[in-house]
């Protein structure tokens, strides 16, 4: 049932211009940033070779590319997630799912996976660009994999957060703005609260930064997984309120 709902979400996305425009525009921006970064790396290569332990192409080009992808995901995920439940509520299509033999858990997970798979597609396109560097040199596969893991987990967090805000309202725009506010807040928590350990640990940026530097720490992965689980559970509970409160 999760697969059915996820497939439905993906079909709806690709059936509208939204998915294609998003993929096209993001790919354009990322390609431009990527080429800029490659250019800068080539310019610096002579100076870098003088260093004892110079940063490689993965550190200089690929990691910034994933950073840029992360920032773009932060901006577009709330817009893609806003329609997931809010639009169904607005168009009165939720009874189709509620009357079918499908649990709330399956509805929430189906919608979550539908969006996450789409976000992963954006990451895959960025990764293909990174792989093109292999034509001219060596990539640090460990660092690349850590970056991929970080961004895929970050995308899942943003999708879960967006889904929760979409479950709160019948107005997609309200869902999007609340979700942008919450994601940015959780992102910036790191900058605003430099010295406070606990607040620091709640920041999405802080955990993402650690993974993207190549440290695949179980604490960071646990943070991401707990984050996803919390917001998916809250979304399911909010959907249940529709049934209980009418």
């Amino acid at each position: 049932m999760i697969a059915t709902i996820a497939a439905k979400e993906l079909k709806q996305l690709f059936g509208s211009p939204l998915a294609w425009i998003t993929l096209g525009v993001l790919q354009g921006i990322l390609a431009w940033l990527f080429l800029n970064q490659v250019d800068a790396f080539l310019g610096l290569q002579a100076q870098l070779s003088l260093l004892v332990n110079p940063p490689g192409v993965t550190e200089m080009v690929v990691a910034p590319l994933y950073w840029a992808t992360a920032l773009l995901l932060l901006a577009i995920t709330p817009i893609l997630a806003m329609r997931l439940i809010a639009e169904e509520r607005r168009n009165h299509t939720l009874p189709l799912l509620f009357s079918a033999p499908v649990s709330l858990r399956d509805i929430v997970l189906g919608k979550f996976f539908g969006l996450w798979i789409f976000l992963c597609l954006i990451v895959i396109l960025a990764t293909l660009m990174a792989f093109s560097l292999r034509m001219g040199g060596q990539l640090d596969m460990g660092l690349l994999l850590a970056n991929q893991a970080g961004i895929v987990l970050l995308a899942a967090c943003l999708a879960a957060l967006g889904l929760y805000f979409s479950a709160l309202t019948a107005h997609p725009a309200v869902a999007a703005i609340s979700s942008i506010g919450a994601s940015l807040g959780l992102w910036l928590l790191d900058i605003v609260t430099k010295d406070l350990g606990l607040w620091h640990a709640l920041s999405l940026l802080w955990h993402f930064e650690r993974i993207s530097r190549g440290f695949l720490n179980s604490a960071d992965i646990a943070y991401f997984l707990l984050f996803i689980l919390t917001f998916l559970t809250l979304a399911a509970r909010r959907l249940d309120q529709d049934r209980v409160c009418g």
Binding site: K11, Q12, S16, H92, T93, P95, L96, S99, P101, S103
Partner: peptide, 22 residues
């Protein structure tokens, strides 16, 4: 046992739950 019971139910609400773009 909502899932087992709903297998035997079909429902048309007052506003039909239709996805316009399908």
């Amino acid at each position: 046992n909502p899932e087992a019971a709903k297998m035997h139910l079909g429902y048309l609400p007052e506003i039909p739950p239709l996805y316009q773009e399908m």
